[in-house]
């Protein structure tokens, strides 16, 4: 993955906004004052980071649990390497899949190469959604499992220090 390093101003912007924006009428101006650059430059830099994918999106980051999505299942699939990219795009586009990645297998303990995180309001709800994925993958998925989380041991989010 292309990973340009941050210039010092980008870095200052990330540090100033990664815990959330100032909630006021002019948040970009407030951010600009914090970082010490003009508001227009804040806007231009954030737009560039959005365009480059360094920012996925800007807005409300919901807490799954507080919205009632208390069940999460990491569904994992053993999909033929030749078709995993094509099928991964289909699975990643499903509205109930929050993250979808190809990752390496770790044979013999771990035959799965496609990971799709599914959120639901109960395990039954997650299982229904996993069944939809199974239906789409059909025989292309040689095996699959759903790993439910039984406990959150740590959740601090990704941060720059």
């Amino acid at each position: 993955m292309n990973a340009p390093s941050l210039d010092p101003v980008d870095r200052a912007l990330v540090l100033a906004s990664q815990d959330g924006l100032p909630l006021c009428r002019e948040p970009w101006r407030a951010l600009a004052e914090q970082v010490g650059i003009p508001e227009a430059e804040v806007i231009a830099r954030l737009q560039r980071m959005l365009d480059q994918g360094a920012i996925r999106r800007i807005g409300a980051i919901p807490n799954h649990y507080r919205l009632g999505y208390t069940a999460n299942g990491m569904s994992v699939w053993d999909v033929t390497d030749e078709r995993v990219d094509e099928l991964g795009m289909v699975i990643g586009a499903l509205p109930f899949v929050s993250h979808c990645y190809r990752r390496p297998r770790a044979l013999p303990i771990w035959p799965y190469n496609l990971f799709a995180m599914v959120h639901g309001q109960s395990r039954d709800a997650v299982a229904e959604k996993v069944a939809v994925i199974a239906g789409i993958l059909g025989p292309e998925a040689r095996a699959h499992q759903t790993l439910y989380s039984s406990r959150i041991l740590k959740k601090s989010g990704l941060r720059l220090k």
């Binding site: 993955m1 990973a3 815990d19 959330g20 980071m49 360094a54 999106r57 980051i61 989010g157």
Partner: peptide, 13 residues
Amino acid sequence: LSRFGPLFQAERL
């Protein structure tokens, strides 16, 4: 809401 603001993608940073 966990927060309100940009959601950064760490690798791209």
